[in-house]
Design a protein around this nucleic acid. Structure first.
Lengths: 335, 335
DNA sequence: TGCCGTAAAACACACGTGTGCATAAATGAT
DNA sequence: ATCATTTATGCACACGTGTGTTTTACGGCA
């Protein structure tokens, strides 16, 4: 059995109250008693029960981190940022996966409530949008990271999708491309709309007429597979460059190009979004718009801490950064 | 404030005891009262407090998952397996990262103890080996996944490193390679030793004399960087194939080859270990030994459940599978 | 009518920790 | 020497839930 403050009290010949106070350095306890009790606690290997403390204080120092799946390449670095800041502030993190499965989403919300988490961070999941009412009933600070459709009462951190797609498109324009395609994903309605918007804004600013054939929205499928299908933008519609919704899509496209003997970037420039780890390893290495994932996690947890301290917080729209690698190149004049 | 069973009791005009029993379907409570109370609980939005239940039952239905970093490409899929099985069994998972930093490792162990987790799973971290005594004192089932140096009192799940390296080497031998190099990592002493063993066993079985120059153990560094350095095995020591400690190392090597105009696999075959996601995206796609990561996570959590149910369990040494892709090829006779 | 058995619900306590208040002892002031 | 004040500690209760035991009420039976 584990050592409790009552055990220490018995050993020291005092009441458990005194032990409790001595251990937290309460001024009303004499220096000598305090020292003695602390020493005794050390000897007996006492470790306070967070469970009992939580029950008493109505704070668990626990947060729920909801993700669609931790295996999504976007998620781990965000999780790392969250966990790091949380741990430093004395909070522990519950990992909960929803798989975009309604049943599991229900389970997750119910579990968060049962566990009495102090706050919730939802990353790239539908939970934030679909279960808004349930989440709100928990009466706990909630921060959403890159969520689709955010409710107005929730706090959020997101990367500036519009700006990102705009920068990426402008990069391609600067390289001389005029027929630039966009591959979107309907499974991420909000950020897809924003990235499309950025793409269109860049074209418009450069006075390039928009060709609807160059916007490709494949039916919902594997991200990678969507990239493979996007090759038609090049084959059928003469795109010389393609902006992909994310890196997985871009890598899928890259892959098909290799199988079809289409030289990247010589024949086709490809640009991704996110800058996942794999982006730098493929060949050619992928030009992409980097999302500051670690920072997003850190900021989200910091925002939670501020909310718990009743500080006022503001939603953040982070800038991101275009990383130029080998998959984009100046268009050949003869084309 | 949240609804408690006392609130329900007041509303129903009974004692909280009756409510508690009614909610869990105790036979001593009349069917009518039970129905009435359950209905009331539903209406009032009652969600039981796991904290209070834990204090009372001395079970938290919580496990600690310790990883070096969740950003390690090996980890997320293992974590997914753990979380999935845990959630189905009513357990929640604390994510704790140690970063191989002694101070944080101490914090993690202490936190696990404070939180009164029912069990612990340690993945690819030193925590399992270095803090054996502290962990043991927690008096809780512990399962280690692919750990370095396992203590004898802990349970473990690991992939068969010897067999994996042997299969990989035999694959290269079958392709006609005779000068096969091995790049190891000193930061993972145990699995490195095992993989080296498998490599040597395959050579011996094929009656190939061993050349110490073909075994390269770079000084501790970034896994990727170690791969880059391993190019010397080819340039200085005429290796026609190189077995790398893991995929990151293999990709590092692959990268250098491309920068130095060395054709892979024509001039040099490369083989990795793990089969991380990126392995299939690089070009040429990487031949590698796949670790069943999802399954490892699931098995680990299942083992925990068995241990908690006092079933006897056995340490597992899983087989893995050689995935042949494009980075290995029949050696050219003229070489 | 009195006894007993049974059903239904309440009482009392436990889990481990923390806090307001009362109490006891020690100190100082008059 | 007495009272006020400070110092140090203990008591009682709270947090929300669960369980062994007791109480209450009711009906059946002798």
């Amino acid at each position: 059995m584990l050592v409790t403050i009552k055990d220490i009290a018995k050993a020291a010949g005092v009441s458990h109250t005194t032990v409790s106070r001595a251990l937290r350095g309460h001024p009303a306890i004499s220096t000598e008693t305090t020292r003695h009790i602390q020493q005794l606690a050390e000897q007996m290997g006492y470790v306070p029960s967070a469970v009992a403390q939580s029950l008493n204080s109505r704070q668990t120092f626990t947060i729920g981190m909801v993700v669609t799946t931790i295996a999504d390449p976007f998620v781990p670095l965000v999780a790392e940022g969250i966990e790091k800041v949380a741990q430093e502030a004395g909070y522990s993190v519950f990992l909960m996966t929803s798989y975009n499965d309604p049943e599991r989403e229900m389970t997750v919300v119910e579990t968060l409530q049962r566990r009495r988490v102090d706050a919730i961070i939802v990353t790239a999941s539908r939970v934030g949008s679909l279960y808004g009412e349930q989440l709100e009933r928990i009466q706990v600070p909630i921060v959403l990271i890159n969520n689709q459709e955010n409710g107005e009462f929730l706090h959020s951190i997101a990367v500036d999708d519009v700006q990102g797609a705009k920068l990426a498109t402008e990069h391609l324009l600067a390289l001389g491309h005029r027929r630039i395609g966009y591959v979107g994903l309907l499974t991420r309605p909000k950020s897809n709309a924003h990235r499309l918007l950025g793409y269109q804004a860049a074209l418009q600013k450069a006075d390039i007429p928009q060709d609807p054939n160059l916007i490709f929205l494949p039916p919902p499928d594997d991200d990678f597979r969507c990239g493979e299908l996007a090759l038609s933008l090049h084959l059928k519609h003469q795109a010389t460059a393609i902006l992909c919704y994310n890196d997985i899509t871009a890598i899928g496209l890259l892959n098909t190009c290799q199988q079809n003997q289409i030289a990247v970037p010589q024949a086709l420039s490809i640009i991704g979004f996110d800058d996942i780890e794999a982006a730098q390893y493929v060949s050619p290495p992928l030009t992409t718009f980097r999302q500051p994932r670690l920072q997003m996690g850190e900021l989200a947890m910091q925002m939670i801490l501020d909310l718990l301290n009743k500080k006022s917080v503001e939603d953040q729209l982070l800038p991101g950064e275009l990383i130029i690698r080998g998959s984009t190149v100046q268009i050949y004049p003869e084309q």
